[in-house]
């Protein structure tokens, strides 16, 4: 009887020992989501108030510092290019033949009318760098056991001060995210699906974004192809490439 009582006493401690900390979860997520370099072909399906638009783009990226995107379709957007170098963003529009730097409040504006902002697009930081994480519970989401992790921003410069993420307990990939302002107001909601194993990492190939302050039925971001850790020539990330 004494032995039985001892087992009962130690079971919760044993379970707690198996439960990863928020920091460990973020490290595992970053292993899946962050990359040194990648070339992505993607499709953005924007469900607006009046119509649905599909925008196709190809992006070359190195870590969270450099990214170059060329829009391939539709005709009105074709040839538009964006260059991100650290926290600066330039846009080239073939119609006006102008290279324009986007800064300040404009970075919070919608990207091509989607539910993503320029800041969202530019944000590829590892979460562990920007947030303190606390596991606040667990829940089944889309038939997967998930940790619910609350993230609190370490600095005021981070786009979203509070995030709540539902992390797959097996694959360590977020399946759902809620992004909040400092006041606690829900700003955006994301759902990540079509989780695929690519080069020994789990990666979501479909993300649905919903800007809670915007009309419309959200934006689907679909990755059609992605290659990780490829060599990308340095000249791509130059302002000269924008006009080519």
């Amino acid at each position: 009887m004494k032995r039985f009582a001892l087992i009962i006493f130690f079971i919760p401690a044993f379970i707690r020992a198996q439960e990863p900390t928020g920091k460990e979860i973020l490290e595992r997520i970053d292993k899946n989501m962050a990359y040194k370099s990648a070339i992505t072909t993607s499709k953005m399906v924007i469900h607006g108030s009046r119509q649905t638009r599909t925008i196709e783009a190809k992006t070359w990226g190195i870590g969270d510092e450099k990214a170059f995107t060329e829009y391939l379709a539709p005709a009105r957007e074709k040839g538009t290019k964006m260059l991100k170098l650290e926290d600066q963003l330039w846009i080239y529009s073939p119609g006006s033949d102008r290279t324009i730097q986007i800064s300040g409040h404009m970075l919070r504006q919608s990207l091509m009318g989607s539910d993503l902002s320029y800041e969202d697009m530019m944000d590829n930081n590892e979460m562990i760098e920007d947030y303190h994480a606390t596991v606040i519970g667990s829940e089944v989401f889309e038939e997967r056991d998930c940790w619910i992790v609350e993230l609190q921003a370490k600095t005021a410069e981070v786009n979203y001060q509070i995030r709540k993420i539902w992390v797959d307990k097996i694959r360590y990939i977020p399946l759902k995210e809620e992004l909040f302002a400092k006041s606690g107001k829900l700003l955006k909601r994301m759902e990540l699906s079509n989780i695929t194993k690519i080069d020994n990492r789990w990666f979501p190939k479909k993300m649905i974004f919903k800007d809670m302050l915007k009309r419309g039925d959200g934006t689907e971001f679909i990755i059609e192809s992605i290659q990780f850790n490829v060599n990308i020539p340095e000249y791509i990330f130059s302002k000269a490439s924008l006009k080519k």
């Binding site: 924007i46 607006g48 009046r50 119509q51 638009r53 009105r76 957007e77 538009t80 846009i91 529009s93 119609g95 006006s96 102008r98 324009i100 986007i102 404009m106 504006q109 919608s110 091509m112 009318g113 989607s114 419309g216």
Partner: peptide, 16 residues
């Protein structure tokens, strides 16, 4: 001067 705005369908509008 160049205006950067959104078209009524949500696309990017850049006009001189």
């Amino acid at each position: 001067v160049t205006l950067i705005s959104s078209t009524m369908y949500g696309g990017m509008a850049v006009q001189n």
